[in-house]
Design a binder for these strands. Structure first.
Lengths: 125, 125
DNA sequence: GATACAGTTAAACAATCGCTTAATTGTTTA
DNA sequence: TAAACAATTAAGCGATTGTTTAACTGTATC
């Protein structure tokens, strides 16, 4: 593979590409990341990793209309990140119990801790 | 916080929100995820985590025009995920040496391994 | 059954995104 | 200095995205 590149600077680079994922694999991964690429959606997802809630309460928590929240929930559900359960008039959502969900959740917590130095010390000067 | 929600189902949910990140923190995180939300950009990023390359070679690797690749590189650089270095006519890009970059890279590898069962066994039936 | 409440869907719209082509900047070599 | 090559930028475009308002299901209660 490296030989048919336009430029051949003597970069040792062949062995890295032995385990290069396929284009479709990257597409699958980027679809997951895309879900977390919206600031509202990542907040909803985080909330649903920590509790099970109905649409009205979620709307209040993120400060948005229920159609807007419902729209985000639909996407998260289509992506397999959350599940829902109807109880009476209300529909309760929560994070799905899957490996990608756990990974994304953990990733969010780590990224917050790394990129937001004031996290955990809100009263810093 | 939980008490002023529209609905109060007896969900024990207060303690989870003691360490809920701020809205701006989620925005920072979603900006990072957004970078990985494009299938081409995540491929370029992965490549630059494994080798240093010039724009022309990157273009050949992902099968796109150099303006298109340059556009993606600009975004990744603005987000602090990659750095560049000029050497003669060529500009070499590589992943930045930062905690978020390492985290994202590791995350990509993990997600590929989890969501793409054929990964590592390309010759499966 | 009628009403009220919870949630979803639809239509419309502005905003953003990613790519293409074309022009421009920067660097090297003839 | 001129020509060739690498890379970036700009303008234009089609497509996608996120939100709003309004209409529409679904469930429980009166």
């Amino acid at each position: 593979m490296p030989s048919n590149l336009p430029h051949d600077h003597g970069q040792a680079f062949e062995h890295a590409f032995d385990h290069m994922p396929a284009v479709e694999d990257f597409a699958t991964v980027s679809d997951l990341f895309k879900q977390m690429g919206d600031p509202v959606r990542v907040r909803i997802f985080w909330l649903l990793c920590h509790c099970e809630e109905c649409v009205i309460n979620l709307s209040a928590m993120v400060g948005m209309s229920s159609p807007a929240v419902s729209h985000h929930l639909k996407q998260l559900k289509a992506g397999g990140l959350i599940v829902s359960r109807r109880e009476g008039k209300e529909v309760y959502y929560r994070a799905a119990d899957t490996a990608p969900v756990r990974l994304l959740h953990h990733m969010i917590e780590d990224l917050v801790a790394i990129t937001c130095p004031n996290y955990g010390h809100p009263d810093a000067p």
